[in-house]
């Protein structure tokens, strides 16, 4: 029974891991922290899984838990600060060196997103993934009006950071 559940969960997560990677890349600045956060999100998801009733899609639920973990449960380790430089300078440059402009744009986006606050990061991710204001307000627990106000501010900030 438990094995069945574990198998189903692992399969679902393997398919949807991209969502978690996006959140990790936005909220951490080093490879090791990325892996750390990914693991923590996975543990939180697995713990909450028995209560997941499928009212929402697995991907929507994963998104919510991942953001919650990044914003509220995860404690940034000190180690991250010391290695952040390396990630920023080497890893991102490596991405930026690709000829592919799409990859460049994604790398630039992450670079900009990392400069935002935790809440703004969440808003940004939800915006980029085309979530409706209703879904955003439900994920964050704020009114739709407030979500719109916050989103507009965040978009302006993001634009400024991207120099567009």
């Amino acid at each position: 029974m438990v094995k069945d559940l574990e198998h189903r969960f692992t399969e679902d997560l393997e398919k949807n891991q991209n969502i978690i990677h996006k959140v990790c890349r936005a909220y951490t600045t080093s490879d090791s922290a990325h892996k750390d956060l990914f693991q923590e999100i996975t543990i939180q998801l697995w713990r909450a899984y028995p209560k997941f009733r499928g009212d929402s899609k697995f991907s929507t639920w994963t998104y919510r838990v991942a953001l919650n973990t990044a914003i509220s449960l995860y404690r940034k380790s000190k180690r991250q600060i010391t290695t952040s430089e390396i990630y920023d300078n080497l890893k991102e440059l490596e991405y930026l060196d690709y000829d592919d402009t799409k990859d460049q744009q994604v790398a630039l986006l992450y670079k900009a997103i990392r400069q935002l606050s935790d809440i703004e990061k969440a808003l940004c991710l939800l915006y980029l993934d085309d979530k409706s204001y209703r879904e955003i307000s439900e994920t964050l627990g704020i009114t739709e009006v407030n979500a719109r106000v916050k989103m507009n501010r965040t978009k302006i900030k993001l634009k400024k950071l991207l120099n567009t």
């Binding site: 991209n18 990859d103 991207l162 567009t164």
Partner: peptide, 14 residues
């Protein structure tokens, strides 16, 4: 200005 980034974002692959 953000639209082109949005498109790139959607097609990103880790």
């Amino acid at each position: 200005g953000l639209d082109k980034y949005k498109e790139a974002w959607k097609n990103q692959d880790s």
